[in-house]
Amino acid sequence: MLVIDSLCKTFDLPAGKLCAVDDLSFQVHPGEVFGLLGPNGAGKTTTMRMVLGLLEPDSGFAEVEGARTADDPIAVKARLGFVSASDGVYPWLTVREMLLYFADLYGVPPAEAKTRCEELATLMDIQPLLDRRAGELSTGQRQRVTLVRGLIHDPPVMLLDEPTRGLDVVGVQTIFQYIQELRGMGKAVVVCTHRLDEAERLCDRFGLLHRGRLKHLGTLDELRGQTGRQTLVQIFVDLLEGN
């Protein structure tokens, strides 16, 4: 389970202070897919980075399965799977070598890592790619490899940052299937995206971020009740016009 409580982060920019995340709180339960939604610059990625311990929050905390990022970042990282659209690969390593390397980084024993690598490769249909150099893969293939990489240590919480960015229809479909699998595995999943139509199909619950603040939180039905609007796009348009 992921708990985010009163997270705040302000950046000192040459143009002045920018409040990227302002008093953000939400929880994601096992088997739940949570959509952290918002336009570009809403604070989604900053939130993820604070959860991962890559950025230090000014106040508040993130807690993964009982461990807080500020107190024990290593334990938190071990319980998180992280996949981002901007993730690259090591071009000179084979896919298998890269997956085993990340398994090692996450402390998976070598023998177990090999088995897990084969299982996930079958699940995500990347068996034929395992012994190819990562530098030779197409964008879609890389994306699948990256998704497997995020799961190599079987984390209870998954963070997906703009997972469909730059993918074609087939690629997006792969992500959808992947997220369904994650839900089936009982993982708590956070999907950060600005693609509201996709989110509507994918997620169980939503947090709508705008300029660092959480404007709405709940299931689609709850959001409809709160706003009187039918779709996430309409809700967002209202939000943007309101500001």
């Binding site: 991962l52 890559l54 970042p73 290593i74 334990a75 938190v76 990282k77 071990a78 998180l80 992280f82 981002s84 901007s86 993730d87 690259g88 690969v89 090591y90 071009p91 990340f102 980084l105 996450y106 402390g107 990256t146 990489r149």
Partner: peptide, 18 residues
């Protein structure tokens, strides 16, 4: 440059070990 830094930093290994 390869875009692998963020994934590496998100892993539970102290920077000093990496």
């Amino acid at each position: 440059e390869r875009g692998t830094m963020e994934a590496l930093m998100a892993s539970p290994v102290p920077r000093s070990a990496v």
